[in-house]
Amino acid sequence: MSDPHEHRTPVALKGLSADDPHLQPAAPNPQLVEKVIAICFVLGALCVAGFGACYWINAQAWKLGATMGFGLFFLGVGLVAWGKYLMPQGPFVEERHTLANSVADRDAFAAAIVERGGGVVQRRKLLGGLLGGGLGIFGVVAMFPLLRSLGPLPKTTLQHTDWAKGSYVVDQSGRRVQVGDFAIGSIATVFPEGTQDSDRGQAVDQTVLIRVSNEAFTTMKGRESWAPKGYVAYSKVCTHLGCPVGLYEQELQLLVCPCHQSMFNVRNGAIPQFGPAPRPLPQLPLYIDSSGFLRSQSDFHEAVGPGFWEHQ
């Protein structure tokens, strides 16, 4: 990249005699340094050739990397040493000229813009305004289709999950959960039947199902029927940033978010008792049907996952 204003930098036409100290190598013993550099270059060349050989025979990654790495390293060290120890040691100096131009130059530049441009615009204010307005409208309008085509509008999709009245609770393999299936202290990730393999099911509907012993469980007011036979279900989507809250500590009765360590009290409606999460994990109301299958009474009563503006 050359200096575009080089004409303002006068070039010094000056000679130095060959024995000038500025032109001597910095190394006190250049012969030795030359040998060392030669060894570096030979090693580098050998390694780089080795890299070619390794590539040819399809050797393991570390052999490729080692040969290439050492090759480049030795070539580089040799080249730096050449420049540092054997080339003219200097120091050399260059003048630094002020970048600013004379006041007259500046005025001429400003005048060119202000007087020519200003004159034109002032005489044709209407045209200028119309052009500006037109371009402005285009600028705003151009944003609309661009932004609008990128994705659908959220509508109410963030507020609901696929859990509905009577959804069968199934595990990750799609098996319906029956009342006797879980021993006390068990945990599983469950989904409303049919969504366990879909992206939305995985991301939105995922729910942790825990079977707590009756004596360890306190039901919150209004949720007395939500956890039949000790089966309690909470949304697995953390209310902080949406990580799956899959970390259950059985003796502490805590659900912990593996990302930022929010701790939710399983006994007490998953109220956060430590960490950055602001809201409890929504609880899924469950019931056991006449055949002994676990099913949901309804959807979650609030939006699952992290907070957003429209979160009720």
Binding site: D171, Q172, S173, R175, V177, Q178, D181, F182, A183, I184, G185, S186, I187, A188, T189, V190, I210, Y248, E249, Q250, E251, L252
Partner: peptide, 17 residues
């Protein structure tokens, strides 16, 4: 068996799993 704080995995994991 779910020792200590570790939960048990019973119904949702078959012996094969």
């Amino acid at each position: 068996t779910g020792p200590g704080n570790m939960p048990r995995f019973t119904g949702n994991l078959s012996d094969a799993q």
